[in-house]
Nucleic acid binder design. Structure first.
Lengths: 200, 200
DNA sequence: CTCCTTCGATGACACTTGTCAGAAACGCAA
DNA sequence: TTGCGTTTCTGACAAGTGTCATCGAAGGAG
């Protein structure tokens, strides 16, 4: 019996996945959590074999959760299930020692298959994604990422500067750098591209 | 036995929802479709009692699907299940005669409940959303929407003008109008707000 | 101690953006 | 016909944006 814990913020999907896995005779769903922090608590209480987690959750993300499991050397395999085919996410996930990375676009049967494979000590990585993950690196540094995130919310250089305790001009320099590195024409395109690639 | 058809592009969720509904003794899942057009074909072939559909799907959206069902006066109840708590979406859905509108944030059990309620001739509308749906109207006209969409992709006033056969200045006027109507400070915020409200 | 790199700041320039007042062109209704 | 509303355009101005060369401070590496 493979003991599984689910972390997923969207209630409908959380419940549906639990139902799906409960149909498998060799899988037991111990419980589920709607955010990263409560998943971490449940994890320590229930000691599952496998954690299935979304990435984008309130508070602690799935990637941070995986990192924490890695640092504490818990004997728990992690499978990430996410909407986003972003190579940056996959790379960070692999660095955090996850065993599986599936897209929500993948057929539902694949999830149970992944749980078994991972429990046997194997991996379950979306093959398409695996290819491009190591080819393209994130060219942005921390400041550029930070500034770009705020610019993407519609903030002006001045507002961003005030928030980060930088000067107006420095913020514009970082934005200009980011725009150049990404090969686009303005802050909006830069934001969209970085977001799409999972670099944000 | 309530006969149900599922339309949802995300394969994982589609399979999981089917598993969830299959657990209900009074519900039968006839099949599922990954996009609007194939849902329409399956609909005519299988003649289900209830269609459960996502909104954002490739090709035909869930809202367009509901409209088509309404125009053809098919005796099929529609339940929309979507990520987006956008009042504009709900309003358009209600105009298209849907009987249910649930968020993917809602608990999974609510779906089976909604299927039964709708099959009995009732409605199942997310209560929070129902309130604001009729209060806030979309203040944008067609041109403003069009221009804002392109601006949101990072295009400059000049590029947008070329695409719409307008002058540089006219595009800026429309953007200025939209920014004013939405009470925000620049095109980026305007785009984000309009998008969030489902006006885009 | 120098040399080098990184981080942040400055000033100047051209261009884009947001705002506003005004006007030409068109359809439509009284 | 006159008048109204809608759509589009124009020009002008202030503010914000993107680029670039340059500069100073701090922190290693040799």
């Amino acid at each position: 019996m493979i003991r599984v814990l689910l972390a997923e913020d969207q209630a409908m999907l959380r419940g549906a996945l639990a139902a799906l896995l409960a149909l498998e005779p060799d899988v037991e769903v111990l419980g589920s959590a709607p955010d990263g922090e409560s998943a971490w608590r449940e994890l320590q209480r229930l000691k599952p074999d496998v954690l299935i987690s979304d990435i984008e959750m309130p508070g602690l993300t799935g990637l941070e959760l995986a990192q924490r499991i890695q640092r504490h050397e818990l004997p728990i395999k992690v499978i990430i299930v996410t909407t986003f085919a972003r190579s940056g996410y996959l790379r960070r996930a692999l660095e955090a020692g996850v065993s599986g990375y599936l897209l929500k676009d993948a057929p539902a049967e694949q999830l149970a298959e992944a749980v078994r494979s991972v429990h046997r000590g194997g991996r379950a990585i979306d093959p398409q994604l695996a290819l491009e993950a190591w080819s393209e690196g994130d060219p942005l540094n921390d400041r550029e990422r930070q500034v770009l995130r705020l610019a993407g919310e519609g903030q002006s250089a001045g507002q961003i500067a005030a928030q980060l305790n930088l000067s107006h001009g420095t913020v514009r320099n970082y934005l200009s750098e980011a725009i150049g590195k990404l090969g686009v024409g303005n802050r909006i395109e830069a934001y969209r591209l970085a977001r799409q690639k999972g670099w944000l």
